[in-house]
Design a protein around this nucleic acid. Structure first.
Lengths: 149, 149
DNA sequence: CCATTTCGTTGGTGACACCAACGATATGAC
DNA sequence: GTCATATCGTTGGTGTCACCAACGAAATGG
């Protein structure tokens, strides 16, 4: 097997990107089989944990663009996993609510996601997994607090 | 600031993906300013480290699809960063060679990439950075040895 | 010699992230 | 109150990366 350039193999940016590729592969297949994708899971998770929310709030919580929330919610609505209703208190807003079927789908996605974590972190010990998660959390938090815009 | 669902924030897959998003943001801007993108860097790096190569070999080294190599090499050729020539020993192959200008571009991208590593890993100590790189390398290596196909 | 494989190429697809602009609505300053 | 400003949902784009199918040309192995 041809080896990859050391310039790449030793850089954190490359390793992160390639790991993310694997994440997408693992999740993509499983989610597609369930008729969902990453964006759908994010929205369902946010609704489950924080209750009904406007699309703008969902976007901020899930790190999604407003326009992508529109599409995700539309697709989830078509699958009867969420409901969209006008906010009487603020007529600009929609209130998005998760349904029973949505909760069920979320549980299903949660299960597959748990096995994905195991596959992804297979070569690491329990301690190493915790270390990796902690370090990545630190990086993500830092960039969340120090936004680009 | 609205917080993200704990389902997401605690999962390695989410943290990896979000970190990769930051990597793309950091690299994307800088590379675009230099008229390049990730694929271009990969090809230039492989050519620099291993010398002239066929497109198929570049694809295997850089984890790129054959068709994506075609486009990247075409664009690099248009910028005079590489040259494409037929392989006399195997008329199916092209031999791709990096040019002087290509080496210069690679050095430029290398520099910006170094500063990107610093920005990305800013919240981590030197020891933590090494740990993170080692853990990710283990994950990437594992999935490289255990290919999907 | 023929089946199989490899190579470059074309022309798609999908996921994710993002941007600009719009009308409708809410809010804050004055 | 009025008016500038900001927010919300929506539409309709764009770019990057990853990937797939199919093709002709060429090499290879049995």
């Amino acid at each position: 097997m041809e080896s990859t350039p050391s310039r790449l193999a030793t850089k954190a940016s490359w390793l992160v990107s390639q790991t993310a590729v694997h994440v997408r592969r693992l999740i993509g297949d499983e989610f597609a089989a369930a008729g969902s994708r990453g964006y759908h899971y994010r929205v369902l998770a946010a609704l489950q944990e924080f209750g009904p929310a406007s699309q703008a709030e969902l976007g901020r919580r899930c790190r999604m663009d407003r326009s992508d929330v529109v599409q995700a919610v539309t697709e989830l609505e078509r699958q009867s996993f969420v409901e969209r209703s006008a906010d009487p208190a603020d007529r600009r807003r929609n209130i998005v609510t998760i349904t029973g079927a949505g909760r069920q789908q979320l549980r299903r996605l949660d299960r597959t996601l748990d096995t994905v974590q195991d596959e992804l972190l297979a070569p690491l010990s329990t301690a190493e997994r915790q270390t990796l998660v902690a370090l990545l959390a630190k990086v993500v938090k830092h960039h969340g607090d120090t936004p680009t815009s």
